[in-house]
Design a binder for these strands. Structure first.
Length: 956
RNA sequence: GGGCGAGUGGCGGAAUUGGUAUACGCACAUGGCUUAGGACCAUGCACCGCAAGGUUUGGGAGUUCGAGUCUCCCCUCGCCCACCA
């Protein structure tokens, strides 16, 4: 009889054994395949860990243990991202040195982690605030400085008046500081900036090679925000000044009917404006407005015309007005736009409000090639464009007739070829468009009392093959909207009646009803009275460019007006200085004679000096600036008097390369030794969530730089990324001190044991899902572990043959599921196996060992104990992962459901290799199936091997 | 407004990718064992129905012998980005 399951005792015992035997020491053993598994390392906050933090750590632990059992050399390290504002703000409040607070927090974190039973090799622990670590952070900065990728700038930056430091765009939450929520200001300070934009295209392109969740890749793309377009200059009448704009749509230039300058734009001050007072007032009110108000996309457009100023549209040489408006942002593109109200919703809204002309220059184009039609309808209908035929262009009209009584639309359905559409027809020479539409409606449908509502400003071009006229047609459709006044009908020509029938359809039925391929567009048009066509198309009202495709026109029109095709990014260069104490000193010395000089590499690290006060000066200088003996130094180049750079690096610096240091944490010669880097890099699986987008951008940027200077051998740092879903408190809110709903993992481990805790976190739901903690549900996994404990009593020498199939299915599923991070179903499969085991009543020793091995990555302590009790001398965690036998996965008999007319009427037991004939006859022999078959004549019978038998019976 | 994703029992969630929907677990119910139990064991548990049977994966249509899964329309929710020219 085994004694009762006591997690406290066995967990402590094995953790001590593992530590004493250095069971998890990482070996750089290049004879084995390698796996590098990494969590986003934590910031050791004063709050300690809550049960949400270890979820990712458990996942990587399971994955790492499993890969080790599969014979891999495994690197699974842990460390601390310990620079940053919270520790510093705490220091300001308490006068305790941030280093002291950080050490204390780390000790607490380690204590909390210790009880969970991770397989970290603590000899590789790193800490970003350790001089032996940050010397290499500074070294990387120096290499960037040498390559001109780190440079000084005086441009106005975001300044948080509360944190008293400059911030990168990425540190903002909209327009407020993401740490303290204070509205940021613009401030001009000398800043260090990293040229991350130089890597934008590579960061974009190399995403394709990564095994990352699509939504994270998409977030990276959005963050980089590449857009291709052109810079175009507009001259100003009576001035030599020019307005330079960036546009992604140079093809719409002929439709640019006004221009807008951002309130911050330099020209607003410089131009000879006759209503100066109004303009200045507007600019002042725009800058006074909180940026949240200003950038709220939903709000009404505001702006003021610059009177006395006219710009010239370089395409059609027309004079157009210039406005200042805050819907144009100073920080993007050139801070000025050409406005094309016909093809941009924001410009449209503004133009409507200020009565500015709207000129359509792009007409939607629907080209009915064979491919397009096949893709949309899955089949061709004979109206596809004939590739070798000329097009005959016709002016045409499309009548949109609404019956206001029941809100339905008049449609016609052609009998001969199943075409469903609206009433359309050609416009006769000299005929008015609206008259033509009325005539077509009357001829085709008989309705004659129509109230004209509007014509759509947007015309479209449809290219198709006219089956009756046997020619390629290019129909230029204008839309005319009517309301039906009454049902009065005139007689329709019999010929017409024979061709088609009339149907009234509700708006929401139209999309599926239409079989003309411009149908979707027509529905959009009637859904949206203010429809603005922002897509591609065919040019109109554009002089010699008319009828050109918009894509081609982009280049040609840019050339015409002397513009330059160019690419811009949302991503801005990275403002890299912080005016704070607790960060890596930027290793630069300012000399009056030599300028900014890099600290020689032999003098690294530039140690963070001791200070008496951690307060930022508030003048834009860091606390370091107050330490004269540290600041004053000599220039490494001319030996003259010089001053140290007093700004520090942002918290992101240390985390941008830490994954490399784990590979070779003690190296004092290089940030990582080449051979070790070659062996371990890249990170095979990287796990995290939350602020991942920015961290990933920065780390990828640094990594690519390190690749360029030969420090690393891979172009990307993280080959595979798994996104972590968070754990919420039981009340569904985030766990926080403020809500008082934090659950400490130590409490849970003390009450349920580490193995239960680990299995529960993996079983809670899909790994990427956000799930609320549940103190009631965790007992389920506790029961499971206890039942495993008890099942050890069922072990016998002889294998239980009835467990062969479930065991081998479980081996396969658990292995596959760990590989794909589907831990919840891996656990559930092991529960299923345990149920089978208990039902069977006995299990062979070998089978039991295999099961323990499968469970070992999830519940390392209890499995180690039971493994040892079987007489194994070495650890289960170093044992070899069990192999499944394909043959044993297949059961010797399978239960196959039998359907009659789609309903399950019985099931039959079949050999997996049974033939269709055998399956069908067995199915027919089932009494209940026979009953349902006897009601009629059998039309069809299907057998899908091992799955299903399906009969179709026609009732007689 | 844009992008991405998701809607399955009272709850967390499964479903070999088009093949018996609701696995596994929680909660709940009944019974057992117990001095006791927030321990353990057994049974039941999508819905309607005494049953035969019928209905059910947000709603509606379609393709198919067969749809949670594929196609179209509509509704709801979540996340990220948001006047990016």
């Amino acid at each position: 009889m085994a004694s009762g399951y006591d997690p406290k005792e066995i967990e402590k015992k094995w953790q001590e054994v593992w530590a004493a035997t250095k069971l998890y020491a990482t070996t750089d053993d290049s004879n084995k395949p390698k796996t590098y598994v990494l969590d986003m390392f934590p910031y050791p906050s004063g709050e300690g860990l809550h049960v949400g933090h270890p979820k990712g750590y458990i996942a990587t632990d399971v994955y790492a243990r499993h890969m080790r059992m599969r014979g891999h050399s495994v690197l699974h390290p842990m460390g601390w991202d310990a620079f940053g504002l919270p520790a510093e703000n705490f220091a300001i409040k308490t006068k305790i040195h941030p280093r002291v607070a950080v050490e204390k927090n780390i000790a607490r974190f380690k204590e909390q982690l210790a009880g969970i039973g991770f397989d970290y090799d603590w000899s590789r622990e790193i800490n970003t605030t350790d001089p032996a670590y940050y010397t290499w952070t500074q070294w990387i900065f120096l290499q960037m400085f040498k390559k001109g990728l780190a440079f000084q700038s005086n441009e106005p930056i975001n300044w948080c008046p509360s944190c008293m430091t400059g911030l990168a765009n990425e540190d903002l939450d909209g327009t407020v500081c993401e740490r303290c929520g204070t509205e940021v200001e613009k401030k001009s300070l000398p800043q260090w900036v990293l040229k991350i934009t130089a890597y934008a295209d590579r960061m974009l392109a190399d995403l394709d090679s990564l095994r990352w969740p699509e939504h994270i890749k998409e977030a990276q793309r959005n963050w980089i925000g590449r857009s291709e377009g052109a810079h175009i200059e507009f001259s100003i009448a009576g001035s030599d000044k020019k307005i330079k704009v960036f546009t992604t749509r140079p093809d719409t230039l002929f439709g640019a009917t006004y221009m807008v300058l951002a309130p911050e734009h330099a020209l607003v001050k410089e131009l000879p404006i006759s209503n100066r007072a109004d303009v200045d007032a507007y600019v002042a009110s725009a800058s006074a407005k909180s940026e949240i108000e200003r950038t709220d996309a939903g709000k009404d457009k505001t702006g003021v015309e610059l009177k006395g100023v006219k710009a010239m549209n370089p395409a059609n040489k027309e004079e157009i007005p210039v406005y200042v408006a805050d819907y144009v942002l100073g920080g993007y593109g050139t801070g000025a736009i050409m406005a094309v109200p016909a093809h941009d919703e924001r410009d449209y809204e503004f133009a409507k409000k200020f009565n500015i002309p709207i000129v359509q220059v792009i007409e939607p184009k629907f080209f009915g090639s064979k491919e397009v039609i096949e893709k949309k309808f899955g089949t061709t209908r004979g109206d596809e464009v004939r590739p070798d035929m000329e097009f005959v262009r016709r002016e045409a009209v499309c009548a949109v007739v609404r019956n206001p009584k029941d809100d339905t639309y008049l449609c016609v359905s052609w009998k001969s070829n199943h075409m469903n559409g609206l009433v359309t027809g050609g416009i006769e020479a000299g005929e008015d468009i609206v008259e033509a539409a009325r005539r077509e409606v009357a001829e085709e449908t008989g309705y004659k009392n129509l109230k004209f509502v509007r014509t759509s400003p947007v015309a479209i071009n449809t290219f198709f093959y006219h089956r009756v006229k046997k020619q390629n047609r290019w129909a230029h459709f204008t839309f005319v909207f009517f309301d039906l006044e009454n049902d009065e009908c005139q007689a329709i020509d019999e010929q017409e009646t024979a061709l088609h029938e009339i149907v009234w359809k509700k708006k929401e039925e139209l999309k599926s009803f239409f079989t003309v391929f411009e149908g979707d567009f027509v529905v959009d048009l009637l859904n949206d009275r203010e429809y603005v066509h922002t897509g591609p198309g065919m040019l109109s009202n554009s002089g010699t460019f008319n009828r050109l495709d918009s894509e081609e026109a982009k280049k040609k029109i840019t050339e015409l007006v002397g513009g330059v095709l160019t690419t811009t990014y949302k991503l801005k260069d990275w403002v890299f200085s912080r005016q704070r104490y607790w960060g890596e000193p930027i290793p630069i010395i300012h000399c009056e004679k030599c300028g900014a000089v890099g600290v020689p590499e032999k003098d690294l690290p530039v140690l963070l000096p001791e200070v008496t006060s951690y307060e930022p000066s508030g003048t834009g200088e860091s606390p370091l600036a107050t330490i004269a003996e540290w600041v004053n130094t000599t220039c490494p180049e001319c030996n003259g008097p010089a001053k140290r750079e007093t700004n520090t690096m942002p918290q992101w610096a240390g985390s941008s390369w830490y994954y490399l240091r784990f590979i070779d944490p003690q190296n004092s010669e290089a940030l990582v030794a080449k051979d070790k880097e070659k062996f371990w890099a890249p990170v095979d699986v990287y796990v995290g969530g939350d602020h991942a987008v920015r961290h990933l951008i920065y780390a990828r940027f640094w990594h690519k730089f390190l690749y360029d200077i030969g420090s690393v051998s891979t172009i990307e740092p993280f080959a595979r990324l798994e996104f972590l879903g968070f754990i919420l408190a039981e009340d569904g809110r985030k766990m926080s001190k403020r809500h008082g709903n934090i659950i400490d993992p130590q409490t849970v481990v003390a009450e349920y044991g580490a193995d239960t805790f680990r299995v529960y976190e993996m079983f809670m739901g899909p790994f990427e899902n956000t799930v609320a903690w549940s103190t009631t549900s965790i007992v389920g996994t506790k029961r499971f572990i206890k039942r495993v404990w008890k099942a050890a009593e069922l072990v016998q020498d002889a294998p239980a043959t009835d467990l062969d199939t479930p065991l081998h299915q479980t081996i396969k599923k658990v292995g596959d599921d760990i590989e794909t991070f589907k831990f919840n179903t891996a656990v559930s499969q092991m529960m299923i196996f345990l149920n089978e085991l208990e039902k069977s009543g006995s299990i062979g020793k070998e089978q039991w060992q295999s099961f323990l091995q499968l469970l070992a990555p999830f519940a390392p302590h209890v499995t180690e104990e039971l493994w040892a009790r079987l007489g194994n001398a070495s650890s289960v965690h170093l044992s070899q992962w069990p192999q499944f036998d394909e043959k044993k996965i297949l059961a010797s008999v399978v239960e196959v459901a039998v359907q009659v007319n789609g309903k399950v009427r019985g099931s039959v037991l079949l050999h997996p290799d049974a033939t269709e004939a055998q399956a069908l006859s067995a199915a027919r022999a089932d009494t209940n199936v026979a009953k349902w078959l006897s009601g009629g004549s059998e039309k069809k019978a299907v057998y899908v091997k091992g799955r299903i038998v399906s009969f179709v019976v026609e009732q007689s």
